[in-house]
């Protein structure tokens, strides 16, 4: 079986590919900003935080995409807002408050899944199934990608300033909280859109791994955003192919490919990688 033939033959594979590329366009740029904020693990936290919403949605309205995504979105936004406001109020640092809120949310989610009437497969919630992407899920992913990219273009300047020097924007009365919460809402939206295809855990992988890897490609923020999208797209295509050829679960295959690219760039990327540090050109050499 060739590399391309399965995609020509199976409709569901083409749909998975389209959905995966949509995610690859929107999630990694958010990851780049999360890395710069030193919030690399927050995606993980928010990914867990949406679980109770998904469970409640499924319990009340059955296993429909709208119910589960809507519930997940509400739960994620609630945790994000609560944590953000607790941190903005100065009660504690943002990572600490998010850790507190997401752990409560996760425990609540697992409790609801085990107690609820609907037969929810926890494993599928956490790891998803990219081959079950239906039209509604595909539309959600494509819509999310559109909203994310347009949003990022609009709030790019204030978001960069807020990320680099929040105190400066505060002194300028630049409404730092607005841009910050807008950004975190995009993170939640992307995780929710990705959870059906990749599961909550794997969705974070596609957001963060290309973002971390992009550091080894470009020294500029814009360069890292472009590089992260390229890496993620490559990982989606390679992961789907690997999953078909080697019969591995699709979500993990995609994240493993992203991980492999990250490790390769960590060792031999053009910027600040192990090789780039070792093979330093002589000083002042052109």
């Amino acid at each position: 079986m060739g590399l391309i033939e399965p995609f020509l033959e199976f409709y569901f594979l083409r749909r998975a590919l389209a959905g995966g590329i949509a995610l690859a366009l929107s999630a990694p740029p958010l990851g780049v900003f999360l890395v710069q904020r030193r919030l690399s693990l927050i995606g993980d936290a928010l990914g867990h935080a949406i679980l109770p919403g998904v469970a409640v949605g499924a319990a009340l309205f059955g296993l429909s995409l709208v119910a589960m995504s809507g519930g997940g979105l509400l739960a994620g936004l609630a945790v994000m807002l609560a944590a953000g406001l607790a941190a903005r109020g100065g009660a504690m640092r943002e990572d600490a408050s998010l850790a507190g809120f997401y752990l409560v949310s996760l425990a609540l989610g697992v409790a609801l899944v085990s107690w609820g009437p609907a037969q929810l497969d926890l494993l599928e919630l956490l790891f998803g199934s990219v081959l079950a992407v239906d039209d509604a899920a595909l539309l959600l992913m494509a819509g999310t990608a559109t909203v994310t990219l347009i949003s990022l273009a609009v709030i790019w300047r204030p978001l960069v300033i807020e990320t680099f020097d929040a105190g400066f924007l505060r002194a300028q009365d630049g409404k730092g909280a607005l841009w910050h919460l807008w950004f975190l809402a995009l993170v939640v939206l992307n995780l929710v859109a990705a959870f059906q295809a990749l599961g909550t855990l794997m969705a974070v992988g596609l957001m963060m791994l290309p973002a971390v890897a992009a550091r080894f490609v470009s020294p500029t923020l814009a360069g890292q955003v472009v590089a992260s999208v390229a890496i993620a797209t490559l990982a989606v295509v390679a992961g789907l192919t690997l999953s078909v050829q080697a019969d591995i679960a699709t979500g993990p295959a995609i994240v493993l490919c992203a991980g492999a690219l990250w490790l390769a760039l960590l060792v031999a990327g053009p910027e600040a990688s192990l090789a780039a540090r070792r093979l330093r050109r002589p000083h002042l050499a052109r």
């Binding site: 300047r157 204030p158 300033i161 020097d165 500029t220 923020l221």
Partner: peptide, 23 residues
């Protein structure tokens, strides 16, 4: 401030134009 942030000098200086240029 995080001095490893991937920004160019002109970009950091340009933040001073916030009051004039806005978001």
């Amino acid at each position: 401030l995080d001095r490893s942030f991937p920004l160019a000098c002109a970009e950091v200086a340009a933040m001073g134009m916030w009051a004039a240029a806005g978001p």
